[in-house]
Computed example of a mutant assay.
Amino acid sequence: MGWLDRLLGRRRPRPIPPPLWQQTVARLPFLQWLPAADLARLQSLSEAFLAAKQFSGAAGLEVDDAMGVHIAAQGCLPILNLGLEWYDDWVEIIVYPDEFVVPRQEMDPDGVVHEYDEVAAGQAWDGGPLILSWQDSQMAGDGYNVVIHEFAHKLDMINGAPDGLPPLHPGMDREAWVAALDGAYDDFLARVERAEARGEEALEQLPIDPYGAEHPGEFFAVVSESFFEQPQVVAAEYPALYAQLALFYRQDPLARAQAAGSSRSR
């Protein structure tokens, strides 16, 4: 049995081998901004996550140790200062080699139901599994992060359908959250519509993935990707929303990125 297999067979966490953890951090530049103490806490949280969750490969994929740790480290970053209990209501992670097909149903204004297949890189089921494309999971680091995206959906689902309003902490102002999210979403939707009118190149130049224009819930997940990977973009484009995300996640990725950059420059 491999290390991950042995680990998943027990509820008590087992240490991630240091070379594997170092390799994982080296592949994810936004983790390198974390101070040493926070990085150690992320490792411990990832170990507890691996002990609590079940990984399944799909379409012939075998999930090995490196894959499991790679996903766990990214998925646990949003809850670094929240706790593993935020992921308590689900267990399984299904990993496909690449994008996969999801059957969809949609009702048009006349009440006719249309069935179609949609190609997806990730999917989160309310109370059920989280599904990822391994190929896309490796694309992290440039503002696109399917792992953080789907884990953000899981947080959003704790209090109902994913609508961009996860359960806020005591002391957070719901009206301030809604105003920041809705204001940013409306502005982003208008920007995407203008870019679509100009063509594909204009869409690619947007600072945030245009998929966020699909729905406020998708916008929250997409902005969460950028918040952790390219915090300077969110802080510059939507400072009020950045402030709310920092309160919710109890993290300030921009400050730690700047601190890490300053440390390296000395």
Score class of each variant (00 low, 15 high):
residue 62 E to T: 15
residue 104 R to T: 06
residue 226 S to Q: 13
residue 134 W to N: 06
residue 52 A to Y: 01
residue 23 Q to L: 10
residue 8 L to M: 15
residue 46 S to M: 04
residue 116 Y to V: 03
residue 120 A to G: 00
residue 215 H to Q: 03
residue 155 L to D: 09
residue 148 I to K: 05
residue 67 M to W: 03
residue 188 F to E: 12
residue 225 E to I: 01
residue 91 V to N: 03
residue 9 G to V: 04
residue 54 Q to E: 15
residue 191 R to Y: 03
residue 204 E to R: 12
residue 129 P to W: 02
residue 66 A to N: 06
residue 80 L to R: 11
residue 230 Q to A: 04
residue 133 S to K: 03
residue 111 G to Y: 11
residue 108 D to R: 03
residue 87 Y to V: 00
residue 117 D to P: 03
residue 146 V to F: 01
residue 16 I to C: 00
residue 104 R to P: 12
residue 162 P to A: 14
residue 172 M to T: 10
residue 117 D to K: 14
residue 243 A to W: 00
residue 146 V to R: 03
residue 19 P to N: 05
residue 157 M to S: 08
residue 122 G to W: 09
residue 37 A to P: 07
residue 204 E to G: 12
residue 111 G to T: 09
residue 57 G to V: 11
residue 58 A to R: 13
residue 15 P to D: 09
residue 231 P to T: 05
residue 121 A to Q: 05
residue 34 L to V: 04
residue 169 H to K: 09
residue 104 R to Y: 11
residue 15 P to S: 10
residue 128 G to M: 13
residue 259 A to K: 13
residue 205 Q to H: 12
residue 183 G to P: 02
residue 22 Q to R: 08
residue 255 A to I: 02
residue 234 V to T: 03
residue 183 G to Y: 00
residue 224 S to F: 02
residue 125 W to C: 13
residue 80 L to H: 09
residue 31 L to R: 04
residue 164 G to E: 02
residue 140 A to P: 06
residue 260 A to S: 13
residue 266 R to S: 08
residue 162 P to F: 06
residue 31 L to V: 05
residue 9 G to D: 14
residue 164 G to Q: 04
residue 246 A to T: 10
residue 171 G to H: 14
residue 89 D to K: 08
residue 136 D to F: 10
residue 12 R to G: 10
residue 202 A to K: 03
residue 152 A to T: 08
residue 255 A to Q: 12
residue 149 H to K: 12
residue 179 A to R: 14
residue 34 L to W: 07
residue 235 A to Q: 15
residue 179 A to G: 11
residue 30 F to Y: 15
residue 176 A to Q: 11
residue 198 R to Q: 15
residue 94 I to W: 10
residue 146 V to H: 05
residue 109 P to H: 10
residue 108 D to W: 00
residue 62 E to A: 14
residue 76 C to K: 02
residue 151 F to R: 09
residue 81 N to A: 04
residue 230 Q to P: 01
residue 49 F to E: 02
residue 245 L to N: 08
residue 98 D to Y: 15
residue 104 R to N: 15
residue 24 T to H: 08
residue 231 P to Y: 07
residue 206 L to A: 09
residue 242 Y to M: 04
residue 145 N to H: 07
residue 131 I to C: 07
residue 165 L to R: 15
residue 103 P to H: 14
residue 74 Q to T: 08
residue 103 P to Y: 14
residue 207 P to G: 06
residue 19 P to E: 02
residue 147 V to N: 00
residue 258 Q to V: 05
residue 145 N to C: 08
residue 100 F to A: 01
residue 234 V to K: 02
residue 259 A to P: 13
residue 107 M to T: 15
residue 152 A to P: 01
residue 6 R to F: 06
residue 95 V to E: 10
residue 233 V to C: 06
residue 60 G to I: 05
residue 171 G to C: 12
residue 23 Q to T: 05
residue 151 F to K: 05
residue 39 L to H: 10
residue 204 E to D: 14
residue 21 W to G: 08
residue 239 P to D: 12
residue 49 F to P: 01
residue 186 D to W: 05
residue 237 E to A: 13
residue 251 Q to L: 08
residue 239 P to K: 14
residue 193 E to D: 12
residue 181 L to P: 05
residue 38 D to N: 02
residue 156 D to F: 13
residue 199 G to D: 00
residue 219 F to M: 14
residue 106 E to K: 11
residue 242 Y to C: 10
residue 15 P to H: 11
residue 45 L to K: 01
residue 109 P to E: 11
residue 197 A to D: 06
residue 26 A to Q: 09
residue 47 E to Q: 01
residue 102 V to W: 09
residue 246 A to F: 14
residue 16 I to T: 02
residue 29 P to W: 07
residue 96 Y to K: 15
residue 100 F to W: 10
residue 235 A to T: 04
